[in-house]
Amino acid sequence: MLGSSIGQVLSHGVGVAISPLALVAIIALLTTPRAVANAVTFAITWIVALAAVVAVLVVVGGLVGANHHDRPATWVGWAKLVIGLAALAIAAQQARRALHPEPAPPERSSERDHATLGIIALATTLAMVNPKNLTQLAAAAVTISSVTPGHGARVIASVVFLLVASLCVTVPLAVRLLAGQRATAALTSWKDWATRHNATIMAVLLTILGTKSIGDAIAALTG
Rank of each mutant, 00 (worst) to 15 (best):
K80L: 14
T222F: 12
A121G: 13
T211E: 05
W78P: 01
A123S: 04
K212T: 01
N38M: 01
I90W: 09
S158E: 02
I214T: 01
A165M: 06
H69T: 12
T116A: 11
L178N: 06
L88V: 05
V82W: 14
L163W: 01
V171R: 09
V40T: 10
A49V: 00
A104G: 01
L162V: 07
S11G: 01
S158D: 00
L221R: 06
A165D: 05
L21T: 14
R154C: 00
V159M: 04
V24S: 02
A138F: 12
V76P: 05
P33H: 15
K191V: 08
A66I: 11
A17H: 02
L117T: 15
L205C: 04
I120N: 01
S110P: 09
V64D: 10
I83W: 06
G7E: 03
A174Q: 06
L209R: 07
M128W: 02
L50W: 01
T135D: 09
L29K: 07
G7L: 02
P101R: 02
L99T: 03
A66D: 10
G7M: 07
A66T: 11
H69R: 00
G61M: 15
A115R: 08
A52H: 09
R196M: 00
L29I: 13
H151S: 13
L85W: 12
T125V: 08
A22V: 03
F42S: 14
L2C: 15
L187Y: 01
V169S: 06
A37S: 15
A174L: 14
E111A: 14
R112P: 11
A138D: 03
W75T: 05
G150V: 02
D192E: 13
G62R: 03
V147G: 07
A115P: 08
I119H: 09
V64C: 11
V56K: 14
V164K: 07
V60D: 06
V175H: 05
G180Q: 06
F42M: 11
S4P: 09
V16N: 07
A140N: 04
V58T: 13
D70A: 08
L126G: 11
L206I: 03
A98S: 07
A220C: 04
V169M: 07
L178W: 09
A183C: 11
V164G: 06
T116S: 10
L85V: 14
L117F: 12
Q136E: 05
R176G: 04
A123T: 09
L134M: 13
A43T: 15
R182I: 00
L177V: 13
I156A: 15
A89E: 11
G7A: 12
L173P: 08
L29A: 08
I144H: 05
I18N: 00
T143E: 10
R176V: 03
T124Y: 08
V204W: 09
I201H: 03
T125K: 02
T116E: 08
V58L: 13
L21W: 08
A138N: 11
A174K: 05
Q93M: 07
P106C: 12
T143A: 10
A52D: 01
R71C: 06
G180R: 07
A86M: 07
V147H: 14
L122N: 09
I6A: 06
T222V: 12
L85N: 13
P106E: 15
Q181E: 14
L88E: 03
A185Y: 02
I218V: 11
T211Q: 09
I44A: 03
R196G: 00
L23S: 15
R112I: 04
V36T: 12
D216T: 02
A73Y: 14
H151C: 00
V171W: 00
K132F: 09
K212E: 12
